[in-house]
Amino acid sequence: MKNLLLLMFTWWNGQTMGTRFYTWRFGKRVGEDELGNVYYEGGMSSYGLQKRWVIYKGYAEASAIPPGWHGWMHHRTDVPPSKEDYVAKDWQVGHRPNPTGSPQAYRPPGSLAVAGERPRVTGDYDAWTPGG
């Protein structure tokens, strides 16, 4: 019952009912990445290109698409990584979830979220004071 409700009411959790139906009707499975995301193609877009889409495993986050699959999804290559021996370049880093809103988020020096005292104002900046 939980999975049915998630399928009906959440777009960020895998796929919706519409995507599931479209995939069943027109989708041809192309491959799967190391994170468990499944890639499909089928039908034609309004630009005359073949439609390509991904069904995420779990939370839908676009940055969770590996570099090889990203190129295929955006029509930069016609051959998906599942049909070639794709090896990521050494400068291509693996997926790291977006830490915004979590304790691992970046907090610059002077941020109210950083413990300690804020640094004194220096330079050509003078803080505004009422009547000053």
Rank of each mutant, 00 (worst) to 15 (best):
G36H: 07
T16K: 06
P109T: 04
N13Y: 14
D90Y: 04
W12L: 10
P103G: 05
A105R: 00
Y106W: 13
Y47I: 00
D85C: 12
T23E: 12
K89L: 11
E117A: 12
N98I: 02
I55F: 07
L4V: 13
P130N: 03
D78H: 06
Y56I: 04
G48A: 04
M8A: 15
G94Q: 10
G68V: 07
L6G: 04
W12V: 04
D126Y: 06
M73Q: 04
A127H: 07
W91A: 02
W24C: 06
V114F: 01
D78P: 00
N3C: 03
G43I: 12
L6W: 13
G71R: 15
M8K: 14
P80C: 06
D85W: 02
W53V: 11
H95P: 08
V38E: 06
R96N: 10
S111A: 12
R96D: 11
S102A: 04
K57T: 11
Q50K: 14
A62T: 11
G68C: 06
M44V: 06
R120H: 14
L112K: 00
L49S: 12
M1L: 07
A60P: 00
M8R: 14
V54Y: 05
S63Q: 08
L49N: 14
R25I: 11
I65H: 01
E34R: 10
Q50C: 07
T122N: 07
T10Q: 13
W91I: 04
G123I: 05
P80Y: 11
K83F: 05
G58Q: 05
M73V: 08
G123V: 06
M8D: 08
D78C: 06
D78M: 12
